[in-house]
Computed example of a mutant assay.
Amino acid sequence: MSLSVKAFVVGEDGKRNLLDVPEGSADLAGFERWRTSVWGSESVRSLGATFFPVLASSDLTVMPDQVADFLDECALIRSNLGLVAPSADPAKSHAEYVRQISERLRNVEDAAARAQGVMGGVIIW
């Protein structure tokens, strides 16, 4: 199972309408186990992250007025990928984890940028 990321807009009826993922983009935000081993890990928490750690216990919804702060947190994580990436997994090298997390984080950043462009939000589930 995989985590997905989507941008959304809030309609006049108050419902969230998910935006299509543009061609050339992806909606993958990582493996389901990354809820705790990456996004909700102690390493991410130690950076002061507050959005991503929510994924350890539930889905994450970033409301439109929070997207700028969420993008700041994405930048914080990006600048600390070496710290965030698990290093104790004998099945995968630390460098491979860094590469995979960077790719999935790019998908999250892209969705957040699309959301910001239409005054929308982001959901990761």
Rank of each mutant, 00 (worst) to 15 (best):
L3R: 12
S4N: 10
S4P: 00
K6A: 09
K6W: 04
A7T: 04
A7F: 09
F8G: 01
V9A: 09
G11E: 15
G11D: 15
E12M: 06
G14M: 09
G14H: 10
K15S: 09
K15I: 11
R16Q: 15
R16N: 13
N17I: 12
N17L: 07
L18M: 14
L18A: 06
L18G: 00
D20P: 03
V21S: 05
V21T: 09
P22D: 00
P22K: 01
E23S: 12
E23L: 08
G24D: 08
G24K: 11
D27E: 13
L28Y: 06
L28T: 11
A29W: 00
G30P: 14
F31G: 11
E32C: 08
R33D: 07
R35V: 05
R35T: 14
R35W: 01
V38I: 15
W39S: 05
W39E: 06
W39A: 07
G40R: 02
E42H: 08
E42D: 07
E42R: 12
E42Y: 03
S43N: 13
S43Q: 15
S43D: 13
R45Y: 02
R45M: 09
S46I: 03
L47N: 11
F51D: 09
F52H: 04
F52D: 00
P53V: 03
S57C: 07
S57N: 13
S58Y: 10
S58V: 05
S58D: 14
D59A: 03
L60V: 03
L60Q: 05
L60H: 00
T61L: 01
V62L: 10
M63L: 15
M63K: 08
M63R: 11
P64E: 06
D65K: 08
A68W: 01
A68T: 10
D69M: 09
D69R: 13
F70V: 00
L71G: 04
L71H: 08
D72Q: 10
D72G: 07
D72S: 08
E73W: 03
C74L: 03
A75D: 11
A75I: 04
I77A: 08
I77T: 05
I77M: 06
I77R: 00
R78G: 04
N80H: 15
L81M: 15
L81R: 13
L81S: 11
L81W: 13
G82W: 14
L83G: 12
L83M: 15
V84K: 00
V84C: 07
V84F: 11
A85G: 14
S87L: 08
S87T: 10
S87Q: 15
A88S: 11
D89M: 08
D89R: 12
A91C: 04
A91K: 11
K92D: 05
H94T: 15
A95R: 13
A95C: 14
Y97T: 14
V98T: 11
V98N: 14
V98Y: 11
V98D: 12
V98I: 15
I101L: 06
I101E: 01
I101R: 07
L105Y: 04
L105W: 03
R106T: 03
N107V: 00
V108W: 01
D110E: 14
A111V: 02
A112C: 04
A113V: 07
A113Y: 12
G117S: 12
M119A: 12
G120D: 01
G121W: 02
V122H: 00
V122G: 01
I123P: 00
I124L: 06
W125I: 09
